[in-house]
Every structure is written in C-alpha cells, then in structure tokens.
C-alpha cells in the first residue's frame, strides 16, 4: 500500500495515490456496511425465541464505549497533525493512544458479546442474534484491523524504515480510522437508540 508514497509528487488530481486509493476503498466499504445494516434493520424485530433487543441492550455502557471510540478519532487527528509537522515522537505517541482507545473499545465489545451470550442471545438463537452479531462483529473486525495498522505504523516508524512521507501514510490510516468511527455512530444510532 505504500508503493506510491515514494512517488506521490505528481498526480492528475493532486491527491496522492494512496489517499485516493483509501477514499475509493472507503466508498466500497460504505456499501458493505450498507448491506449489513439493511440486513439488521430487516431482521431486528424478528425474535421467535431468546431475548429481544430492548431486554438486553445496556445503553449507558454502549454510550460510554462509543464515546471512547469517538475520543480516538480526536487523538487520530492529533497524530495526523503531528505527522504533518514532522514531530516523530508525538506522532508515535498519538498513534499509540489511538490504538489503546481502540483496543479499549474492542474490549468493551468482547464484554458486551459475552454478556449477551450469557443472557441467552447466541449467534443462532434468532434472526436478531445472527444479524446483530454479524453487523457489530464486522465493525469490531474493522476496528481491530485499524488497531493492527496503527501499531504496525508505530513499529515501522520506530525502525524508521517507512518508505515515503510519513504524513501521507498516517493521513491514509487516519481516513480509515475516522470512517470506522462514523460507521459506529450510524450503527449505534440505528441498532441501540431506535427502539424496535
């Protein structure tokens, strides 16, 4: 993914290849989450056995974990800005903080899944269960992939082997991270806040 970073100096649009590539990819991701969200919206009320959404959702907790994820967007912005100013140490610091907050969110999701499972909502319990775990699980996987990218980035920077301009790479991963956060806001609203 970093090929073009070396030679992002001229492009017809003025945006570097990797950034344009990430934008394009995120466009595609919109449809992926669109499909998953539609599936969930279609099936969210369909419970023929096991708990119904309102019986198990813990809105205060999920709001808090959503807040933590949103905070990570802020730290990501700080990381990008530090990278633009070529402050390597600060970039690494904010990337680490972002990754930590992301990991906290995923930890919360693992907790939530375990709790729901204990309360009787398995993956094959009902249509609600299948579609809920699939949708939020896909989001969780996206966050996890994001964390791995952030940590890899920190590792790569430490070894100062990153090819190309750092800021471009940080910005590209930042795009991804913000996208994942925005998707969560949509999921949080549609899945948790709107009653069935």
């Amino acid at each position: 993914m970093t090929d073009a970073a070396v030679h992002g100096h001229e492009s017809s649009t003025g945006i570097s290849n990797i950034k344009l590539g990430m934008w394009t990819f995120l466009g595609s991701e919109c449809l992926l989450f669109g499909g998953l969200i539609s599936t969930y919206m279609l099936y969210r009320g369909r419970v023929t056995g096991g708990p119904r959404p309102a019986q198990i959702f813990d809105i205060p907790f999920t709001s808090v974990s959503s807040f933590v994820l949103l905070m990570s967007s802020l730290t990501m912005v700080l990381a990008v800005s530090a990278a633009h100013k070529s402050e390597d140490k600060k970039t690494n610091l904010w990337l680490t903080v972002t990754a930590l907050l992301g990991a906290t969110f995923v930890g919360g999701q693992v907790y939530e899944f375990t709790a729901f499972y204990n309360e009787g909502l398995g993956f094959s319990t009902s249509l609600f269960g299948s579609s809920f775990y699939t949708l939020t699980g896909f989001h969780g996987v996206h966050v996890t992939v994001g964390i791995i990218m952030l940590m890899a980035l920190v590792g790569i920077f430490k070894r100062s082997e990153v090819p190309g301009k750092k800021a471009e790479v940080v910005e590209m991963i930042g795009l991804y991270w913000h996208f994942v956060d925005i998707v969560w806001i949509i999921i949080f609203t549609l899945v948790y806040l709107i009653p069935v």
Partner: peptide, 14 residues
Amino acid sequence: NFGARFFDVAAGAD
C-alpha cells in the same frame, strides 16, 4: 458453516 439463521424461514426469515 456457523448456524446463523439469515434464510431460515422457521425463524421468521425472508
């Protein structure tokens, strides 16, 4: 492969 019920009519699927 994992027992999800997306197309299982008995569970109310469409």
